[in-house]
Every structure is written in C-alpha cells, then in structure tokens.
Write a protein that binds this DNA or RNA. Sequence first.
DNA 1: AACAAAATCATCCTAAAGTATGAATGCTTT
DNA 2: AAAGCATTCATACTTTAGGATGATTTTGTT
Lengths: 154, 154
Amino acid sequence: MAIHLKKYSQIISYGVGFAVLLIIIKWLEIRFIVINYSFEIYASAIAVLFTALGIWIALKLTRPKFKIIEKEVLVTNSIDFKFNEKAFAELGLSKRELEVLQLMANGLSNQEIAEKLFVSLNTIKTHNSRLFEKMEVKRRTQAIEQAKKMSIIS
Amino acid sequence: MAIHLKKYSQIISYGVGFAVLLIIIKWLEIRFIVINYSFEIYASAIAVLFTALGIWIALKLTRPKFKIIEKEVLVTNSIDFKFNEKAFAELGLSKRELEVLQLMANGLSNQEIAEKLFVSLNTIKTHNSRLFEKMEVKRRTQAIEQAKKMSIIS
DNA sequence: AACAAAATCATCCTAAAGTATGAATGCTTT
DNA sequence: AAAGCATTCATACTTTAGGATGATTTTGTT
C-alpha cells in the first residue's frame, strides 16, 4: 500500500513540477517577447532547470534497491551426526569400550549396561576403568562430555 | 585512483554531452529561423533532452545505492546455543537447580559443584533430588541426556 | 506482616560407581 | 608356539551418588 502511494506521489510530483516549469516557460516567453532576451539565455535556463528536474526525478525514482545477503552459520546437529574417526583412533578404544561408552551416555547404569550386553557388572566396571584411563577422565559424566566434544558419540 | 578516474570521466562525459546538446540547440535555432518552428516545440525539445540528461547524470553519479539486508539463516549450533524456554518453564526448575544441572553436565562431581557454588555437599544432593524428581529421571546421566534433548542446557 | 517458594544444611542409610589386583579365555600376529 | 590384545569375570575395598526426612534461613509476593 505504502509503496503504491509513494509511486503515485512521485508521478504526481513529476506532473506538478512539469506544469510549474511549463508556466515558467510561458512566463519567460512573454518576457522574451517583451524585453527581447537573448534566445540562448532562454534555452540555457530551460536546459539548467530541466537538467535539475531530471536529476531530481532520477534520485526520487531510483530509491530502493535491495541487496539481500544471506549469512549462513554452520550446523552441528545431533541428528546428522558425524563420527570423528581420527579422534576415535587416537584414543585407541576397543569396540566393546565404545559400546559401553555409548550406553553410558544414554543414561544407563552399569548394571543396565551389563544386562544389555549379557555380561557381568564387574566386566562393565573393568571396561569403564580402561575407558576412563584412555580418555583421561575420572567419572562417567566427564567421559560423556569428552566423547561428545570429540564427536566420537552422538 | 579508480574512483578519481571515474569521477573525472563522469565530468568529462557531462561536458561532452552538454557540448553536443548546445550544438543541437544551435542547429535547432538555425532550423527554427529557416522553417519557423513553433517556439514551444523547441522549448519542449530542450526540456525533454535535458530532463533525460539530468536523469542520466543522476543515475551515473548515484551508482551504488543498495540497501544491504543481511539475512541470517537459522541453525542450532553448539556455540550459539538456543535456550528452550518453554521446556524449561514446564519443568519448573529453579535457577539454582538449573545451575547444578549445568555443572553436572560439565562432568563435575557433587563435591566439586558444592565447592564451586560455595554450599555444602548436602545442599547439592538436595538440589539433585528435586532435579531428578522434576525431570522424572533416576540418575544424573539421565538428567544430562534429557536436558540436552530438551535443549535446556548446551 | 504473613505466606509460599526457594535455598540451605544435617543425619542416616542404601545403591551405584570407581579402584586395584589377579586371572582365565579366545583371537591375532609374528 | 609365544607374545599381545580384547574380553571376560571375581573379590575386596573406597568413594560418590542418591533417597528419605526434618529443619532453618532467605527471598519474593501479596
């Protein structure tokens, strides 16, 4: 709405401006006849005035040119998880240890992990110890944090 | 350098254009005298020409008139973390409880959290209990998992 | 001022987690 | 075959976590 009004107002302004200038021309014409001004001065006056008018029109019309720049930020989402093989290889975790680590991160207790993997609680504890040693952490919560930071688990 | 050259070239162009138009005027003047054209047509021609010239000048001079709109595209990054207020409000966690939860997720033990917040170990345990109750979990690891899923912590 | 949350701390107890050490088994690799 | 590693399990012990309950103090709200 506002844009359309603006467009129309510009056209109207142009029209009004043109009308005013035509009146000035007419007036100058009369003056020219009466006091016999030089034709070049008259033409120059028109030239200057309409040049100004043209500039003004152009400035009014070429107002809004938008340049939309889309700035993208990278995504680290839990859905499209990327496994960091390098980090994993450097840690030297075994398959079983990784398995335990993942279940750990899912909030399972040692007992639950043991049941899920059909091994004893003690086995899980042993895995945990090796795990913590390799990852250089003291607690399972730290192991989880580390693992997520290193992107070796989701 | 390039900018200065451009400026000068524009001025030169303007001068040349003006010269050409003066020649046209002169030519028209001759024509006017010879075949006695109406003065209004002559004036109109000048007006139109110089309006066009004005527009052209303005367009050349006001070249880069872009309105730059930077549009940042969404994305949930681990760095610029978005706090999920709705989920948090529904849980009804207090400020302190949230604080404890965050430190918990950073792998700190209850003792370490207590020291960091200058309260006793028992206080942290009490917070934990309420926390687990509200989040409907049994262990801190589950609380961390839940909280991350619900995006109430990073 | 009165009331409701929130935050604090304690004590007692149980459960889970973590450490240390040793050992048996199976599977590769040399 | 021997050495190395992963996996398994056990026992004993320490530390941390968690549950239940009660109480005091702060703080914000009406």
